[in-house]
Design a protein around this nucleic acid. Structure first.
Lengths: 221, 221
DNA sequence: TGTCAACTGTCAGTGGCTGTCATTAGTCTT
DNA sequence: AAGACTAATGACAGCCACTGACAGTTGACA
C-alpha cells in the first residue's frame, strides 16, 4: 500500500490524486489551521469535486492521518521482526527506535519530511484531531497487544499482561509525543531523546516511593 | 457545582433545565444510539429550542460527558486527600477505589446509576464519543501529573516521572474501562475487580521476561 | 471498436453548530 | 409595587461536514 507500484494507468492516476489531496491538505492545515480549512478548498486546489474528496477519505480528519497510518503499519512490521529473545517491553521499545531509522524514506515518498513534522504538531494542538488521534491509537494498541501476546504465546483475552504492558507503553509514548508537540524543537532527534528519557523512567516511576534522595518524609511501609 | 444549592429562582430553573437535558440525552442515546439521536430531538423533549441546548453544552458530545465530568472532579479531590505516606502509584490506585465508594450518591443526584452505567458503555462503543473521551482524558492526565508532582515536591516540567507514572496508570485504567464496556457485566463490582486485576499486573508486566512458568523458549540474557 | 465497469461531477438534502436580534422573565432598585 | 436592568431564551438565517442518487466520462479489455 505504500510503495507498491500500481499496474494500470487508472490506478496510477488514482494514487496521484490521493497523494495530491494529502499534500495539499497538510499544506493548508499547517499554514492556515485545520478548522479554518474547508474541504472545498482542498478539493478545489486539487481540482476535484468535494464529493470526490469524500470518496478518497471518509472524513476531513482521515486525510490528516494518511501519513501517520503508513508509519503505524511500518512500526507493526518492525515489531513483528524483533528477535524472540527480547522481552515484551524491550521489543516495544527497540522497535520504536528501529522504525524511526527508516521513517524518513517512507514518509518522503508522499510529503516532505518537514511538512509531516509540522502536521504532527498540528494534530497535537488541534482538539478535534487530537481526539481522532487518540481513538486511532486505541485500535493500534489492540493490535500491538495481540502481537505481544503472540510473541509470548499467550491468550490476550485470558492474560492481562499484554494489554497492560502495551497500555503503559502507549501511555508513555503519547505523553512523549504531546510534550514534543508543545516544544520548539520539531526534529527527529528531539523526540528520539525525549522518548529515550521517558521510557527509561517507566520502571522507576512505578516503584513504591520516589523519595530516595533529599526528600522530606520517610518512605511508607 | 454538584450539590451546591443555587440561590435564586433563575439559577434553580437553569439547573433543572440542564439536568433535564442530560437525563433526556442519555436516555435517548442509550436507547436509540448516539448518532441516531439529533440535538433537535433532545431539545424538543425538554421543550427548549435547539439554540438553547447549545447554550448549555458546547457540543452534542459534551452532554454525553456531563456525569463523567463530575466523577473526574470527584476523583481529583479524593486523590488530593490521600495520605502523604502513600507512594505515587499507590495513591493513584487507592484513590480509584475510594472514589468509587462515593460515586453512587454523586451520580444519582442527576441520573439513575443504571443509566450512567449504560451511557458509559455507549461511550466506549461509539467511535465519535470514544474519541472525545480520550481527548478529555489527556486533560485529566495533565492535571493528575500536576497533583502527583505536587505530592512529591517535584517540578512537573523537569522530572518526567509524574507524567510517566500517570501515563502508565491512565493507560491501564483506559484498557480496563474498554474491556469492561465490551463485557456483559455492567456492574460496579465487575469493573472494580477488573481494575484490581489489571493494576496488580502493572509491575510484573513491565519486567524483562514473562516466561517464568510453563513456557517454551528459555529466558533471554 | 464497442461494451463494461470504475471513477467522477452535480445536485439536493440532513444535521451539527454559530451569529444576530428581538422578546421574555427573574432581579434589583427606590 | 412599578420600572429599570439584564440574564436567558426563541426564531431565523447561514456555514460546513457529510451522504444518497443519478448521470456523465474515461480507462480496461475482449
Amino acid at each position: 500500500m505504500t510503495t507498491a507500484e500500481p499496474t494500470g494507468l487508472r490506478a496510477r492516476k488514482k494514487q496521484r490524486t490521493r497523494d495530491a489531496l494529502v499534500r495539499v491538505a497538510l499544506e493548508l492545515f499547517t499554514t492556515q489551521g485545520y478548522e479554518r480549512t474547508t474541504v472545498d478548498e482542498i478539493a478545489d486546489a486539487v481540482e476535484v469535486s468535494q464529493r470526490t474528496f469524500f470518496r478518497y477519505f471518509a472524513s476531513k480528519e482521515e486525510v490528516a492521518f494518511a501519513v501517520q497510518e503508513i508509519l503505524e503499519a511500518h512500526y507493526a512490521v518492525v515489531l513483528r521482526g524483533r528477535p524472540a529473545e527480547e522481552g515484551p517491553l524491550e521489543a516495544l521499545r527497540n522497535a520504536v527506535f528501529a522504525a524511526w531509522d527508516a521513517i524518513g524514506e517512507a514518509v518522503e515518498e508522499i510529503v516532505p519530511l518537514d511538512l509531516y513534522m509540522r502536521s504532527f504538531q498540528m494534530i497535537e494542538s488541534t482538539p478535534a484531531l487530537l481526539a481522532a488521534h487518540m481513538r486511532r491509537s486505541t485500535v493500534t494498541e489492540e493490535a500491538l497487544a495481540g502481537l505481544i501476546a503472540e510473541r509470548e504465546g499467550l491468550d490476550v483475552n485470558t492474560d492481562p499482561r499484554p494489554r497492560v504492558a502495551v497500555a503503559a507503553f502507549s501511555g508513555v509514548m503519547r505523553a512523549t509525543g504531546r510534550l514534543w508537540g508543545q516544544g520548539e524543537d520539531p526534529s527527529i532527534e528531539a523526540i528520539r531523546s525525549l522518548t529515550e528519557t521517558f521510557l527509561d523512567h517507566l520502571g522507576p516511576a512505578l516503584a513504591g516511593s520516589w523519595r530516595t534522595d533529599e526528600r522530606r518524609s520517610p518512605p511508607g511501609p
